[in-house]
Design a protein around this nucleic acid. Structure first.
Length: 283
DNA sequence: CTAGCAACCTGTCTGC
DNA sequence: TGCAGACAGGTTGCTA
């Protein structure tokens, strides 16, 4: 579900309730999500102060005083909801437990963090903070799209010789980390590139143009608190509102927003996922 | 090595 | 109302 802007939004919402606070107790209500939880997860979390929260791609990392880091991925349907914060910034009442509340962190400041994930494509793991970047899930990731290592030369090299559609290439987390279906569709529309075009056969200047466009789309979405489709919520339960700014995603049959165009937005399926685009504006 | 596709799971919506 | 089928923001791991 959540792509980079949604994960960033969730992390920012968690930070005031978690950073500097101690996990008094962790309730682990099932043995696994997508994979089994690490051994003794509840015990390894209990009593640990959260030194810092950070994000890598679509993963949230909580660095603990023990020298371990908790890694969280929200999968397609995962949520992290904060309640009972003593500063009154969040939903004050603790909500009743709901179906699919798989892990609950009780903070010593009175806050409660509830991880709810109906589809269970999410994941949690523990690792040594010092070697976190070598973790199996993190070591394969490409550069952060909002960081300095993501630049024109990188993307041009990454696309070089690739016979795969540009849509698939941008979803490949090894080339650039954090993009998902929505923001790839939106970026390709802004760049005027057809999603089915082979990555290796796009002019370098057009590939280069994707870099600032991707940065802009993600930054705007973060500013808007992410996109709320179906069940995405910020950590305080609020909705994001970037979905109102979509040019193409979910707009099949509606008019292209380019005032000189107005053609109906198309939907095609590429490797099992919907791509939305304007056949006039994207070539 | 690359590319395509099934699989993992539940919930929601549409059409008959 | 019931039921089948499609679809959903992600990622791994199989097969060709």
């Amino acid at each position: 579900m959540p792509e980079l802007p949604e994960v960033e939004t969730v992390m920012r919402g968690l930070a005031p309730a978690m950073q500097g606070a101690v996990i008094a107790r962790a309730d682990v209500n099932r043995p696994d999500l997508r994979w089994p939880f690490p051994p003794q997860m509840a015990q390894r979390l209990a009593g640990q102060q959260v030194l810092q929260l950070r994000r890598r791609s679509k993963y949230i990392l909580a660095d603990l005083a023990s020298g371990e880091s908790l890694l969280v991925h929200l999968g397609m349907s995962g949520r992290m909801l904060v309640s009972g914060d003593p500063l009154g910034q969040f939903v004050h009442e603790h909500p009743a437990a709901e179906k699919h509340d798989h892990v609950v962190l009780h903070m010593d400041n009175g806050a409660r963090i509830t991880f709810n994930d109906p589809r269970r494509f999410g994941a949690m793991d523990l690792m040594e903070t010092a070697t976190a970047s070598q973790h199996k899930l993190l070591s394969v990731l490409g550069p952060e799209p909002l960081g300095n290592d993501f630049h024109e030369a990188h993307l041009i090299a990454a696309f070089e010789g690739r016979n795969t559609p540009v849509k698939s290439a941008l979803l490949d987390q090894r080339l650039v980390a954090g993009l998902g279906n929505i923001y790839v569709c939106e970026a390709l529309y802004r760049a005027g590139i057809h999603p089915a075009r082979k990555a290796g056969r796009i002019a370098k200047t057009r590939v280069a143009s994707l870099v600032p466009i991707i940065r802009d789309v993600l930054s705007e979405a973060i500013k808007a608190g992410g996109s709320s489709l179906r069940d995405f919520r910020q950590a305080d339960g609020e909705l994001g509102y970037f979905q109102h700014s979509f040019d193409v995603y979910g707009r099949e049959g509606e008019s292209c927003r380019n005032p000189d165009c107005g053609a109906p937005i198309q939907r095609i399926v590429q490797s099992g996922r919907s791509s939305f685009y304007c056949r006039q504006c994207q070539r």
